[in-house]
Design a protein around this nucleic acid. Sequence first.
DNA 1: GTCTATAGGCTGATAGAC
DNA 2: GTCTATCAGCCTATAGAC
Lengths: 231, 231
Amino acid sequence: MPVKGEITKPQQRREQAREAIRQEILAASRLIITREGFGALTMRKLAQHVGYSPAAIYLHFRNRDEIAQDVSRSGYAELLAALSSAVDASPGDAVSRLRALCAAYVRFGLENPQTYSLIFMEDPAYLAAVLAQQAADDPGARAYALLIDSAEALIAAGHKLPKVGKPPRAATAVEFAETIWASLHGIVSLKVICPAFPTSSAEVLMPIMVESLLGSTTTAPAAENGSQRKR
Amino acid sequence: MPVKGEITKPQQRREQAREAIRQEILAASRLIITREGFGALTMRKLAQHVGYSPAAIYLHFRNRDEIAQDVSRSGYAELLAALSSAVDASPGDAVSRLRALCAAYVRFGLENPQTYSLIFMEDPAYLAAVLAQQAADDPGARAYALLIDSAEALIAAGHKLPKVGKPPRAATAVEFAETIWASLHGIVSLKVICPAFPTSSAEVLMPIMVESLLGSTTTAPAAENGSQRKR
DNA sequence: GTCTATAGGCTGATAGAC
DNA sequence: GTCTATCAGCCTATAGAC
């Protein structure tokens, strides 16, 4: 139904219809992927799901990869939403927010294994594309930025990041944030691919990681109990 | 050529020939996988490589999965060898050995991305099978045990593992070891699937992780500088 | 034992009728 | 625009000739 007062040319109506079908196809793709994984997304199955012939899909998407990219993008958007709301709901201090962020990340991965697998464990193209396109509105880039910002907030709050390299220097916010991310990804990806294997639960592994990493930072203002463990 | 003094019956000779062909097929499989990845291992390509027809492969292996299992097993053996030699070459103290183990693990993964991918990032069957079969001679189980042992050596050397859970209790050796493993896996798997993405190099990320985790342990005997960071 | 030939299935993608 | 029909290729696995 056109908005009152707007002129709806036949062209526009057609455009809207096209977009609606596109979204319908994407919704079906997401459903198939979250249920059976990316490998199960075939053009035939997808066409059957939306009630078209396989050939019709190609009128709206160039190929299977373009669909995967779009679904991937919405997967990053879901992740971003989960992380954002966790950050917003947490208390004000930097440490608490970082803890909340980590917990939300792991929870998202475990609750959406197929989506997580698609966006972080499948073809590198989707992952690389996120980094390559520095568009600030990309949900993947924004999720990444959320983590970096949290590490910077830690520094701003007076925490000193752990030393690294020879000669030793303080780790940068990006290095520290990526260390956290890689650690969390290790838990999630192992659990996603083989739920039984790390015999300990993510609820046990994650706090050990996060608290160790947070513990490796030292607070500058309150130097009463300096906990440097080396040099 | 039979060993001098042994009686080589026709039966034995045939057995040896069969085994030789089996090994030849496995060698070709490893070559294909390390070059092009597990996905590129097809019966046709494999047959072409060893100079047989596709059908001939089925005389020596039940199916593709059996080949994958065998290659996977040898992958675990390679990993075990890399870890063992690193442990043997390191100084005696528990901390140094754990550091050496971690460095060797990451190095192995980065130097053998396709093998690493096969044994830790593909079909869960291979990973689960290693855990399921508690056979002590399985290379995968032995590599796992090597890590657990290192964590236990840390305890034996007087280190207290970090607290976890509510109410807080000290983490077990298995929990601590699996935390280390998951962290390292996070680095390697991200780098393997998308070398460009964690923008920091593994050489930077890995020490931050390992030193943080080691730093979260406290040495009991020398309690002069207790570095509890909480409670 | 090893081969050729082939069954029977799947895939992504396209040409051309309506 | 949407369809049917099909291409060209891949796959695992097997039957039966030599």
